[in-house]
Design a protein around this nucleic acid. Sequence first.
DNA 1: CTCCCATGTACAAAAACTTTGACATTGCCA
DNA 2: TGGCAATGTCAAAGTTTTTGTACATGGGAG
Lengths: 74, 74
Amino acid sequence: MPKPTKVTNSIRALRFANGEMTQAELADRVGVTRQTVIAIEQGRYSPSLEVAFKIARVFNVPLDDVFGYPDNDT
Amino acid sequence: MPKPTKVTNSIRALRFANGEMTQAELADRVGVTRQTVIAIEQGRYSPSLEVAFKIARVFNVPLDDVFGYPDNDT
DNA sequence: CTCCCATGTACAAAAACTTTGACATTGCCA
DNA sequence: TGGCAATGTCAAAGTTTTTGTACATGGGAG
C-alpha cells in the first residue's frame, strides 16, 4: 500500500483544457499506463520526477503549473 | 542497478550558492539520507516528486530552477 | 603526523512507484 | 435493449527510489 501523497495536481483540469483528452490518451502520450494516470490524478501517490516532467510537457506548461506542494508538511 | 536518469539538476550549484551547505545538511533539511542527496546530485536516478519539491523548497526556488528535462527523450 | 569533516562507493533490504490483467460502473447512442 | 467508451477498483508482480551500515579518499587543523 503506497503512502498517500501531499502533492496536488491539476491534471484533470489540464486534460479538459486540452481538448477533452482522455486518461488513456494522456497515458499513451506520457508513456505510462492508464492505471498510473488514474492513481496520480487521484493523488494516491506522487509520480517520479521523470513522469512528472513528461506530463507537464504534454500540456506544455511548467512543472509548478501541474503539481503543487503544501507550505508545511508535518 | 537503477536506471540512469535523463533529468538534470543544479543541486550542487544551489548548495554552494546557499552558504556552502553540505550534502549532509541538505539531506537533513530535506528529510532524506545523505546517500539520497549524493545519488540525486550525481544524476544516478531522478527523485520522487515529493523529494524534488522538498529540495526546491530548501533553496526557495521553483522546481524548474532545480531540475531540467531534455527536449526530446528517445 | 593524526584527527576530523566532506565526499564518494558498495551492498543488501525496505519502501514507493509502475505495470499487467481482469472486472464493475456510468453515460451515451444506435 | 445492447454495445462501446471512459473511468475506476483490486491484487500480484516488477522496477526504481530510499535507507542503513560500513569503508575509502583528500584537505585542513591542531
